[in-house]
Design a protein around this nucleic acid. Sequence first.
DNA 1: TCTCATCGATAGGTGTGCCCTATGACCGCT
DNA 2: AGCGGTCATAGGGCACACCTATCGATGAGA
Lengths: 294, 294
Amino acid sequence: MELHHLRHVLAVVDHGTFTAAAAACHVAQPSLSQSVRGLERELGAELFHRAGRRVVLTAAGEAFVPAARDALWAAEEVRTQVAAVSDVVAGHLDLVALPTLAIDPVAPLVGAFRQAHPGVVVRLAHPDSTRELVERVRSGASELGVTELPVAEGRLVTVTMGRQELVAVLPPGGRAGRRAGAGSLALAALAREALVTLPVGTSTRDALDLAFARAGVQPRVAVETDQREAIVPLVLAGAGCAVVPRPMAMAASGEGVLVRSLRPPLWRDLGLVRRPGVPSPAAQAFLAIAADRA
Amino acid sequence: MELHHLRHVLAVVDHGTFTAAAAACHVAQPSLSQSVRGLERELGAELFHRAGRRVVLTAAGEAFVPAARDALWAAEEVRTQVAAVSDVVAGHLDLVALPTLAIDPVAPLVGAFRQAHPGVVVRLAHPDSTRELVERVRSGASELGVTELPVAEGRLVTVTMGRQELVAVLPPGGRAGRRAGAGSLALAALAREALVTLPVGTSTRDALDLAFARAGVQPRVAVETDQREAIVPLVLAGAGCAVVPRPMAMAASGEGVLVRSLRPPLWRDLGLVRRPGVPSPAAQAFLAIAADRA
DNA sequence: TCTCATCGATAGGTGTGCCCTATGACCGCT
DNA sequence: AGCGGTCATAGGGCACACCTATCGATGAGA
């Protein structure tokens, strides 16, 4: 039993004759006769009384018709559901973003996307590392990844999204804050302070370590945690200084921490990665929004 | 889009790989790949991320799967509905019977059929004439016809069902009743009485006219009506005598009319007519019940 | 890091099955 | 009784789906 069988029988019901139904189905009349006959054989029941000039539904046919209409409607619903995803009015968009990028730039991008496409659910995964982020994108578990560039995976397509400054957040009234004044803070000076930082392997920590190495100094790690929510409270409590993306630092400045640029400035390039090929409509829409913001 | 496309995609979802899905569908792996690829082209959306060794559903695929399951379930429901009719547990049986035969033998037959097949609705049509009855059966509007034999339509299959006696019903205390006593009533004597009868063209009336003609007498028609329910009340009210099937007469005798056999006795052969070919399961069941009762 | 096993995609050949045209049988209408 | 129309059947042709063989890619294991 295939859908065209159902279509053929319903065409006969709706048009009254095999001939008219064949025309409506764009097939020859004998083809439609054979199609219906084959379905009747498969079902083991005649659907029509063939009474010369007119065809009349049998009891089996009466039972068949509404069920067949349901089935065809359900099949059409399949198209509708898929089309809704294609039209970015339903479905979901799987994103993965480095946790430090969740506040910026991911949050405003997702907000704009949701405004434009309220029917599409955004699923945002938080990888433990850039390696896991890349793996999720490459396997298709997530369609777009927001990460630091460059990524060590040549098979993925990369879209740059500008750069983000990493700045120091200092406890109010501390030595570092007094020394830096309202200006910037030398890396060497930061290296003398107790540091609250993420574990090795996270992108922010690795960028920071690289900067210290280039400056020829050794940081003093005081607290190492993978709980990002704890960093600002730890700084406020005087546990040490930290280095975070500027958007995150600005949000925390309202809580009392001091924000200082580093000297030399510490930047990192951000971008989107995706699998090669044509992205889904939802991903295309997200990419367009990201391009507009850049 | 055809049902096997849906089956193929769901097999991939359920088995995790194209290879396993192909085995489950009893097709080669490249065939299933092409089938899925073709459906994706038709829908204009990829359903799977092909990530090397593993396949992952896209957002469109996620939307596709439940809808496709619904559609396949609906298609299976088509089979179920038709099978229910074939198993005589659902659907309907279209009968047509001469009105004078509705009390007997149709009523007890339908009763027995309904006892055996409570899920099957019996639709009993009342034709105005044997010609209309035959036409309904021949066109398929009704599947079985209960009628007087023989029928003037050689293309229908006839099954005899025994014969039925036509008897006189007389008003209590009337002249005819006294003359007949407890025995039978000669046709010639009935011809002298006022008659309550159906219009010409009905089978009972035509049988009666034929009997009078053979006896060489002319009936005196007093009331001619196509309202069968009025006949017994008319007789009771003294409007005249009537000739009706014995089962109907026996039912009316409880209301006070006298019942007398005719001399010579007046019989008519009863039977079922149907279209040639294999009857529906419901009709077969009804025919079996009718054969048992004969 | 190299090899191997496995998976999906592609290419090319083949057969089944569907569709078409032509024709026949039958019915109903005029 | 002739005619138009309907459905069924027969037979040829072509498209499509299927199959085998092979390749490229990937991930696991040595």
